[in-house]
Simulated assay, not measured.
Amino acid sequence: MKKIKVMVVDDSAVVRQVVQAILDQEPDIEVIGAASDPIFAIDRMNKQWPDVIVLDIEMPRMDGITFLKKIMAEHPTPVVICSSLAEKGAATTMQALEAGAVEIITKPQVGLKRFLEESSHELVTAVRAAAMANVKRLKAAPIAAVKMAPAPKLNADAILAAPGSHAMAQTTERIVAIGTSTGGTQALEAVLTALPRVCPGIVIVQHMPEKFTASFAARLNELCQIEVREARHNDRVIPGLALIAPGGKHMLLKRSGAYYHVEVVDGPLVNRHRPSVDVLFRSVAKFAGKNATGFIMTGMGDDGARGMKEMHEAGAPTIAQDEATCVVFGMPKEAIKLGGVDRVMGLQDIPRAILSG
């Protein structure tokens, strides 16, 4: 069995020791080196190049973002970011995802050793997902925007303040539900930036740690014609608005009279995730039925496969991203195997499918 070769780059000796100990316990993973900064790391990597790099952000001599950009430009390699949960760190991690990082592992400022030991499954899963990643897809060419007449961005608060408006009357017509994981930050950016401001209301689960989703949504909001933000409990789902489930919480679609809204709730891990795509998709199947369209995109594992089948059985059109454009063809593959997918298409075709239903 070919082992996944891993390089750990972190200025904390404790992190290096604990991460190496966790990974070396796995029969399919081998840590080939650990370095305190990118300068030391590159010397080691030039002798034996790793399959995956576990990378800190704040380090001496060269920061992790600069190193990541250098790696992706010169020798694209899957990178797992091991970062703090600080607000500044969350924004910086968004830059890392934009630069091509595959996964995020969060670490606290205190209790680091215990945290890493308790999160060993998450770390191992992230490394395995990264090893499966198609790095050529991490920085795919941008999707052309769907052409429509220019108009100012819809503001959700303004629409909600006008009961009986045409926009609100249309909220029961179409709901778009999207689930994604590894590689999803880049895929979602490509899809959402291609949408015009007049589009169905969108609910999204992207596997991402707590506090990072707010920064991710804010960044997308700056880039998109539609409004994008982290979901809040009881937010209405309306045209021109995409709601992203907060990290560390589940998001469900509910219906109240003629309108749809989301519930953001605590709960146990589902398919090892919180938020879980299955939780969202099953609620969409129950409360929206054939008024919804489901999309399952790049990601490792099977989260969302059962929920997509329930959407399919409820009459909702269901679409999976194809293998050629996925960073990891895991979640779409499992949904297809389970029989819950109506169509398979490339990433570049998804924006038009969102508009056409």
Results as ranks from 00 to 15, higher is better:
residue 99 A to I: 07
residue 138 L to M: 15
residue 226 I to K: 01
residue 183 G to T: 12
residue 315 G to D: 14
residue 30 E to Y: 08
residue 59 M to D: 12
residue 19 V to P: 06
residue 14 V to N: 09
residue 208 M to T: 03
residue 256 S to V: 10
residue 354 I to L: 05
residue 195 L to H: 06
residue 98 E to Y: 03
residue 58 E to K: 08
residue 152 P to S: 07
residue 273 H to A: 07
residue 145 A to Y: 12
residue 113 K to S: 15
residue 72 M to N: 09
residue 181 S to C: 04
residue 269 L to N: 11
residue 1 M to V: 13
residue 258 A to Y: 04
residue 86 A to N: 12
residue 219 R to V: 09
residue 48 Q to L: 14
residue 114 R to W: 08
residue 24 D to L: 01
residue 26 E to K: 06
residue 121 H to M: 15
residue 236 R to L: 11
residue 137 R to A: 14
residue 193 T to S: 07
residue 31 V to I: 07
residue 97 L to G: 05
residue 289 G to T: 09
residue 112 L to N: 06
residue 121 H to Y: 14
residue 178 I to S: 01
residue 92 T to N: 07
residue 36 S to K: 13
residue 69 K to P: 11
residue 246 P to H: 01
residue 68 L to M: 12
residue 125 T to W: 03
residue 65 I to N: 05
residue 71 I to A: 02
residue 279 V to L: 04
residue 272 R to N: 14
residue 10 D to E: 07
residue 99 A to C: 05
residue 113 K to T: 15
residue 272 R to H: 15
residue 76 P to N: 02
residue 170 Q to C: 14
residue 42 I to E: 13
residue 195 L to V: 10
residue 324 A to V: 13
residue 193 T to Y: 06
residue 169 A to D: 14
residue 81 I to Y: 07
residue 133 A to Q: 03
residue 345 M to F: 07
residue 220 L to K: 01
residue 290 K to D: 15
residue 154 L to I: 13
residue 81 I to M: 15
residue 3 K to E: 15
residue 153 K to F: 13
residue 271 N to F: 01
residue 163 P to Y: 07
residue 321 Q to T: 08
residue 323 E to I: 00
residue 189 E to I: 03
residue 224 C to N: 06
residue 279 V to Q: 02
residue 229 R to E: 09
residue 72 M to T: 11
residue 193 T to G: 07
residue 19 V to S: 00
residue 220 L to C: 02
residue 225 Q to I: 05
residue 322 D to L: 03
residue 201 G to T: 05
residue 128 R to L: 03
residue 350 I to E: 04
residue 41 A to Q: 10
residue 120 S to Y: 06
residue 10 D to F: 02
residue 156 A to E: 11
residue 257 G to F: 06
residue 244 I to G: 02
residue 297 M to S: 08
residue 125 T to R: 03
residue 113 K to P: 08
residue 274 R to K: 15
